[in-house]
Write a protein that binds this DNA or RNA. Structure first.
Lengths: 129, 129
DNA sequence: TTCCTTTTACGAAAACATTCGTATATACTT
DNA sequence: AAGTATATACGAATGTTTTCGTAAAAGGAA
């Protein structure tokens, strides 16, 4: 089995991935327009970043038409999990419960979402000592 | 009220803060020894980082004795909250529940901790629609 | 004192990440 | 076809973070 090094998207790369995860495969133009909603950034900057990401194997470019279409090669949930693991270690010394408590305590989560979490807790308590 | 810019410790800086939060004010030597347990790093590298952090106002150095003693000026919980907010936006598009579900689903959290979280949920459901 | 060890000071290199100017190609409009 | 708009290619500048070599200062041991 080949050792797969876990990719570590930078902050800017993650922004781009988010757009692609949300919208599906897209042109640089579309991604750039989405990013422009939140921050000032030049078109060629976005282009360059996406080209670099393609080199790194995070994206794949379909070059058949003039406007290349980029598709994310990283799965959203898997990537989130990897980022989360790293973040939990770095910021909370690995304590999931501390992280969760702070995440819940300081954000308005809807009743529905809280219920979802409660259900997960029920399921988990089954298997834990 | 003076505008307090939220500090953004880098990854290395955060590692140092963790040591100081855990052990309390310490010398470069101690911090360096702790870091060395997990990774290869030169002593002067650690020193330099801590000096930079002092310049930035993250640490305060007591220079009365030859081995300076560094004290963290950032509060642990407050800093964690700020990092968490940023991370939640960047990696989970701001969804606390998604983050929480993934954090719980993929880590063995003890029954006691799960109960703590359940209690928090109970308290939260009171105030939410 | 002299030698050895530990510490801080300083500056610069190395490694990454981000940004963008300019050139060139491709398509669209008139 | 000529002119305009939009795309990619390329390379380099800029910015940030991390690393460490070297020197000087301070302290301890012989």
């Amino acid at each position: 089995m080949t050792l797969e090094k876990t990719p570590k998207p930078t902050e800017s790369e993650l922004e781009i991935l988010q757009v692609l995860w949300q919208h599906g495969a897209s042109t640089v133009r579309l991604v750039h327009e989405e990013l422009s909603k939140t921050k000032e950034v030049g078109y060629t900057t976005t282009l360059k970043l996406m080209q670099i990401m393609a080199e790194k194997g995070m994206l794949e470019a379909d070059k058949t038409s003039r406007s290349h279409i980029y598709r994310p090669l990283l799965e959203e949930e898997k990537t989130q999990q990897q980022l989360l693991d790293r973040f939990m270690d770095a910021a909370f010394r690995g304590s999931a419960s501390k992280l969760v408590m702070q995440a819940l305590g300081n954000s308005n989560t809807s009743k529905e979402e809280l219920n979802e979490i409660r259900n997960l807790l029920d399921k988990l308590e089954g298997g834990n000592k």
